[in-house]
Design a protein around this nucleic acid. Structure first.
Lengths: 275, 275
DNA sequence: ATGCCTTACGTTATACGTAATTATT
DNA sequence: AATAATTACGTATAACGTAAGGCAT
């Protein structure tokens, strides 16, 4: 039986030019390599070298064999690499969402039910999430509208409503609800990866957003200052913690979103765990 | 290093269902196969089996691995087979011709100059010969007209003129030359694979051709009977041998052909040997 | 004389088989 | 009880390295 090691040896000889040099490269003695190559010739049933007693040069069949050997070894390497990738993908559940808070809830639930799995989370807009779901990049996605397409399972997952958290002394803190625009040109703390909430920010460009990319830093700033910040019904109450804030509902249309959980038909088991 | 034998073992397990059965098929002990598969898993860096103490079933990664393994083994088999084919082709000189006699001359010359090579000969019409030369099916071809195309070498090779060999008592035997049609509805011995000479036969359908597929049988009939037969300036004189025949030149236009030797540009060495 | 390939021979290392163990049907 | 996989251990085969030989540059 032909061995992959023999194909590597053949390639080494073609690269080094002599059997001696190839043997050294392969940490093998010269005679051992000679014999191994002879076996390969026997197993292939062809002569690969023009042997001149003192010189073993690849003949045309040998050159052809080298090209084929490289292809075979490449295929084997690819096989190993792609199997590792495949195994990794089987053991991870990738979820995508257009909003961060429900994604964290979902991730928490999945982690509890599938402690052996790795979770990966990603934010995106509904269109790209759906495309990713279809090509297998995501196992589950949370969209801002119901998806009705063949092969796609979809069900209402949760609703999120946005609030602003104001210091008690703030002029608007006594109101039950406001529109975000009423804050005028004030500063407000915001998280960078806000997904769908990006809409309400874009519609109120006059506000001064203090954008934080680190969730921990954001939490610290909330505790340490009395700057306004965002909050929602899904935000853990401990996020505001002992900070002295009054939450005021936002009246804007974009301040309320219903999230829908979607999975592919062949992932029905996973999907139904969560309904 | 992964071994091809291990990939075969993996495939055997997938086909037999159990390691035990696969071990038997492979003429291996069960423990040996178990260990070999464990090594394979280690080398690939993935788990291929769901092990249930008493049962080792391929998991999804394993199934994927089987598919890849089959592809790799197929590539190796193809490699071996195609190398043998390639080696065989390198050691043969395939020649094609539109006429048998000059092809035999050419083959004889090639055999003398390249005693280590195998010769293969084939008759065909000039168009298909040229196509075959271009795609590498032939190293040399003999055509009935000069070829002037880029990448193709071409030179006049020889001329052949057709005769009829008649018994001395035949009414036409005293003529220096005749047209084939003058034989009326007589019988005449002919060789099946006549290439370009097929033309003159087709133009004289009234004759009764006694077609022989075996050259030896044809020669025997020439000796044993006094039936008319064909002959040419390239036909070995010993073909007519001691048979009592008078050769009469044929006046028909198709009875004289000039043959041209053609080869591909990259075969200039071989081509120039013969000019 | 040096470099390179091959053959011969003794040795080692790797993979094998046998036997024992455990678990499942 | 029977089947199947794994682990342990002694063994054997196959490939290795060293040494020797021969040819070419």
């Amino acid at each position: 039986m032909i061995e992959l090691a023999q194909l590597q040896q053949l390639i080494a000889v073609s690269e080094q030019g002599t059997i001696s040099a190839a043997a050294e490269e392969l940490h093998l003695s010269q005679p051992a390599l000679t014999r191994s190559l002879q076996r390969l010739e026997g197993e292939l049933g062809v002569v690969l070298f023009d042997r001149k007693r003192n010189r073993a040069a690849l003949n045309r069949v040998g050159e052809q064999a080298v090209a084929r050997a490289k292809a075979v070894l490449g295929a084997v390497d690819d096989m190993a690499m792609e199997l590792r990738l495949y195994a990794a993908r089987l053991s991870t559940i990738a979820i995508g969402s257009c909003g961060p808070a429900p994604m964290w809830d979902l991730a928490a639930e999945l982690a509890e039910r599938n402690p052996e799995k790795t979770l990966s989370t990603e934010l995106g807009d509904t269109e790209s999430l759906l495309a990713g779901l279809k090509r297998g990049s995501y196992r589950l996605i949370l969209t801002d509208r119901p998806i009705e397409q063949p092969g796609i399972l979809c069900q209402k997952y949760t609703q999120e409503r946005l609030y602003v958290a104001l210091p008690p002394k703030h002029p608007l803190s006594a109101r039950p609800s406001i529109r975000l625009a009423e804050l005028g040109q004030e500063s407000i703390l915001a998280y960078r990866d806000m997904g769908i909430w990006q809409r309400i920010v874009q519609n109120n460009p006059q506000l001064h957003y203090l954008v934080q990319s680190d969730r921990g830093t954001l939490a610290e700033l909330v505790q340490a200052t009395d700057l306004p910040c965002f909050s929602s019904n899904l935000t853990a109450t401990r996020f505001l913690g002992r900070s002295n804030r009054v939450t005021v509902m936002l009246e804007d249309e974009e301040a309320s979103v219903t999230f829908f959980l979607c999975a592919r038909e062949n992932d029905r088991d996973l999907f139904e765990q969560l309904c």
